[in-house]
Simulated assay, not measured.
Amino acid sequence: MKTINIAIDGPAGAGKSSIAREVASQLGFVYVDTGALYRATALFSLEYSTQEEFLRALEDDCHLELKYFGGTQCIFLNGDNVTEKIRTPEISMKASEISALPEVRAFLLETQKDIAREFNVIMDGRDIGTVVLPDADLKIFLTASAEERASRRYLELEDKPDAPTYEQLLEEIKQRDYNDTHRKIAPLKCAKDAVRIDSTTMGFHEVCEEIMDLVEDRLDLE
């Protein structure tokens, strides 16, 4: 039986993960946060002093698993739950850096495709609709202004020790946007057949409702 795949792409901080997680929950689909796979790989890369050493170790020594507890996705690196460790600005920038490497993208590509072949999924990332799942049943490109994305991130982090300033977050987001859209391998872009949603002035539930409407209009879930 063919599985149903929904791809959500977009820049950093657009709300892809939280929105995809909520819609997947409503549909009873598996949510796949591909960014977590890249972040965990970025965390692994920090163990090596050079890029060459990291890439040599990648295939044999980097073991990633996605596990679900009460519907929540957790990412395990070599048996350790690193779900919280990978949510730092340092890891975000490192993930953006290593995602430009063809060896890293090839390493993670089959993992993502295997999950989509086995389950009905909502998968979010940067190149899901263009590279990972080019035949996805529904493709969405979710975006928002850099300023709005920085503001959202600032509100998430402002109560944490050593929280970055809004200006720092805005600069990081702009740098990630540049890195993601200018990399030679699978750059961030809107697939030709994707529905573009700009969430700059939309609330969380508004975006979820719009996506659910698209699912109901375009997919046969009977």
Rank of each mutant, 00 (worst) to 15 (best):
F54Q: 11
R218Q: 15
N78E: 06
R21S: 14
G79F: 03
F204R: 09
D162P: 04
I115E: 06
K2M: 14
T34G: 02
P89V: 05
M123Y: 09
S145Q: 10
D114E: 15
D124Y: 05
F119E: 10
P161K: 02
A144Q: 00
D9E: 08
S17Q: 01
F76A: 03
I8M: 07
F29L: 03
A36S: 15
T201F: 13
G71H: 08
D180A: 05
A95L: 08
Q168W: 01
E65H: 11
L43F: 08
T3H: 10
Y68L: 04
A40E: 01
G79P: 03
E103P: 13
R126P: 04
G79N: 02
A116W: 07
D180C: 01
R126H: 05
P164L: 07
D135S: 12
D180V: 00
D220Y: 11
G125L: 00
R153H: 07
E216H: 12
L221P: 11
L221S: 02
L101P: 13
V195S: 08
Q175I: 11
R149C: 10
G203W: 01
A100K: 10
E84W: 00
E52R: 12
H182Q: 13
A24T: 05
E216R: 15
L64P: 12
A194S: 13
F44L: 09
M202N: 03
R126A: 03
S96N: 11
Q168I: 06
T41P: 09
I86R: 00
M212G: 04
D80L: 06
F76K: 08
I128R: 04
V215Q: 06
A57I: 11
T181C: 03
N78L: 05
R152W: 01
V195D: 08
V30L: 15
E47R: 15
F54L: 09
A95M: 10
E167H: 07
F76N: 08
V132G: 01
K160I: 06
L27N: 04
T130I: 02
D80M: 07
I185P: 07
G35H: 01
E52H: 09
V32S: 01
V23Y: 01
K113C: 10
L55E: 14
K85G: 02
D159P: 00
L170H: 13
Q112C: 07
S49H: 12
E167Y: 03
R153D: 08
Y48S: 09
Y68E: 04
A42E: 12
L157M: 14
E97T: 14
